[in-house]
Design a protein around this nucleic acid. Structure first.
Lengths: 207, 207
DNA sequence: TTCGTCATGTAATGGGTTACATGATTAC
DNA sequence: GTAATCATGTAACCCATTACATGACGAA
């Protein structure tokens, strides 16, 4: 158990998708790439090794529905391999979904983490959104500073590029602001209704 | 000529920056990261090996300005190393700036290629912009198709993510449209003025 | 029966990061 | 004189890609 760094983004994505429903690799990859569509695309060369690794570490298992009545005794020669989560896998997924750190708000990971927000605790969601926002704001500030420093020394295409980048990020920040606002409103509403019924927020007992 | 794949994006970026003015590695990296600000950030761990490789392949050379009057006979112990392009390097840069292929319009390369558009031929610029646009439109189409297929089966966060991605890309397409429009207008104007004067005036009048 | 798609995999490679190690210069 | 920053470099590793190889299955 020492070391054994997970496959980063892919691990979460695979576990998350398999949690929604069991699947075989090929389909997994398609769902992956439509899910993340604009952000990333994985190839088989990374997916299958990842599945293999998850298998050997006991987070997923093969799940052959066994519908062999149809007179095919050896139907298993290079057929589909459907994977599903094990108990350990569910636990691992839960763990991944609970940590709100750089991995969850940097460029590589944010999309995937966001995609599974409906399985994520509300407070974690909020911290991830805020983390990403402040990350982007850092970037904005440093680029704006650089832009102010070098004003008039850059050619028009460079300027155009930096402006477009700036505007894109500003746009994402506005998007995050709106999401954060919604999350906060939701939390308040929940807090209100729970204080009404004299209950403190149940802190995610392990089910 | 056999093999010797260049260091991808970095090679172009380094050659391009050094073409504008000689620099040492540390400064190069800063300029690199402000130039590309929103898109990429390189670390020394990739920059210095790249410089080394460019050095050994003769595309850049050390350029010590030699201002040693100040009584420092051994001023060179671990001092700055300023690099500049060689003739080969300039040629290579020109070559890189002339090819309008996937490398120039895929996500990884587009920003860098665009950043040096002022050193790029007008027709190449146009083809790169159009290449990127059609690349993005492909992506839009496939995501929209997927979205239509799975409508109502996805949870709200996934939907939110996909929508945001979609809008981001649509926005970039609009940006590209405008740039392409400008480029075309410029080309037409140049064509017009050159046809106007091509009978009695020497062609090639630079401003 | 052949072609396109579904489906699973591996080996070689690649481009990059992190963490580390160290020296030089500047500001206080 | 010491801390921060400038400046150069390397080794170990990581995540993923490309290209390849193979096999099953349905439709023309």
């Amino acid at each position: 158990m020492a070391g054994k760094k997970g496959a980063g983004v892919l691990e979460l994505a695979v576990l998350g998708l398999l949690h929604e429903s069991p699947m075989h690799g090929y389909e997994l990859r398609k769902r992956l790439n439509t899910l993340l569509g604009m952000f990333r695309a994985f190839s088989y060369g990374s997916l299958y090794p990842c599945l293999k690794q998850l298998l050997t570490s006991g987070l997923i298992m093969e799940d052959r529905p066994e519908e062999p009545n149809t007179a095919l005794a050896l139907q298993s020669r290079r057929s589909k391999i459907v994977y599903k989560l094990t108990a350990d896998g569910k636990e691992r997924l839960q763990q991944l979904l609970t940590e709100a750190g750089p991995a969850s708000w940097e460029d590589e990971g944010f999309g995937v983490h966001f995609a599974f927000f409906s399985h994520t605790r509300a407070d974690v969601r909020l911290r991830i959104l805020e983390g990403r926002r402040s990350r982007l704001e850092e970037r904005l500030e440093s680029v704006r500073a650089a832009l102010a420093r070098t004003r008039e020394r850059v050619d028009s295409y460079t300027l155009e590029l930096q402006n477009h980048g700036l505007e894109s990020v500003e746009r994402e920040v506005r998007w995050l602001n709106e999401l954060i606002g919604r999350e906060r409103a939701e939390q308040e509403q929940q807090a209100r209704s729970s204080s009404q019924t004299n209950q403190d927020m149940p802190r995610e007992n392990g089910r």
